[in-house]
Every structure is written in C-alpha cells, then in structure tokens.
C-alpha cells in the first residue's frame, strides 16, 4: 500500500427531502410528551414553582433548538448507496456513522412502513448481517426507492451462495 492519503467518499444518494419533516414531527412528539409531563408537574404541587417553570422553559428552548437544527443536519448527513458488491450508508448528525457490509454477508432485507412514515410516504430499509452489531438501516426513503432497493438487494443476495457468517 502506498502512503498517499486515502479517504472514503460519502455514499452517492441522499434520502427523500420529506424526511426532514418526518424527523421534525417525530422529534416534536417526543418533546411534547416531555413538556406535557412537566406541565402536569407544574400544576400538581404548590412548592418549587420557580424551579418547575425554569425546567419547562429550558425544555422549550432546547426543543426548539433541536427541532431547528437536527432535521436539517440529518438530511445533509444521511446518504446511502448500494452496488453489486456492498451496501454503504452514512447516518447520524452529532455522531455520524458510516456502515459498509458486503452483499455476500447479508442475511435479511426488511422494509418497514411505520404509521408516521406512511403519512409522509416514506419507508425505511434494514439490511442485517450475521453480526448483531451490523444492521444497516436506511431511513427516510420514499416508497418507490425503498421497493427498488429491496428488489435489487434481494436479487443480488439470492445470487450469492454460502451461509454468510
């Protein structure tokens, strides 16, 4: 091997733009549950009211920041690519992760349409290997792309012999 610097490039395809809205809504639901619990806590008892107000306000500020930053950031990070040889994804936002698995080691290909995802016409595809640490998940694909990806992966995987462990 030469000493010249090598680097991985990012995977080729972005996910659907609608994923931004999907991530925002999903995170907002979580924040609303937390805020709701804090409101109940605020109404519940007489003492420590200032502390409880501060907690609620802090939660609100954090929530707004998170909802403004996270989905956009995620959208810029999340990418995927699939060749005849390998599946390659990039996910995350603050902590980012690139996962690569050879097609020859794929055990299952699942596509999932969650309730919330269906509202936005999205789907996710999970590719698992024999390692419990190896599942590769592509979030926020639009439905047609997801079906195509599953079809492509299942056909290439079927063509590869062996028990892939």
């Amino acid at each position: 091997m030469t000493a010249e610097p090598v680097a991985l490039r990012a995977p080729a395809h972005r996910v659907s733009r609608r994923a931004i809205v999907y991530w925002t809504v999903r995170a907002a639901i979580g924040w609303l549950v937390l805020a709701g619990a804090e409101v109940v806590w605020l109404i519940g008892a007489g003492s420590l009211v200032p502390l409880r107000l501060v907690a609620l306000v802090a939660t609100g500020v954090l929530a707004v920041l998170h909802l403004m930053v996270m989905p956009q950031w995620r959208y810029r990070v999340h990418r995927w690519e699939s060749t005849d040889q390998a599946v390659y994804t990039q996910t995350g936002w603050f902590t980012q992760e690139r996962r690569i698995a050879p097609i020859s080691r794929i055990q299952t290909v699942d596509s999932e349409f969650g309730v919330l995802e269906r509202l936005f016409g999205l789907a996710n595809v999970t590719v698992t290997t024999a390692s419990a640490a190896g599942p590769i998940k592509v979030h926020g694909l639009d439905k047609d792309t997801a079906s195509q990806l599953v079809a492509q992966l299942t056909s290439t995987t079927a063509a590869t012999p062996g028990d892939a462990t």
Partner: peptide
C-alpha cells in the same frame, strides 16, 4: 462481515474515527 466507522463531532474535529469490525 462489515465495517462501522463512527465519529462524534469532537472526533471529526480531531480527525480520528472509531473503526468497528463487525463479526458473527
């Protein structure tokens, strides 16, 4: 049977990565 390359924001700034080899 696969690679995971993980970087937090701090790791990206430091130019280092946690390289995980996955296995069965």
């Amino acid at each position: 049977i696969g690679w995971n390359l993980r970087q937090s924001l701090f790791q990206r700034r430091a130019g280092v990565v946690t390289l995980e080899a996955t296995t069965a």
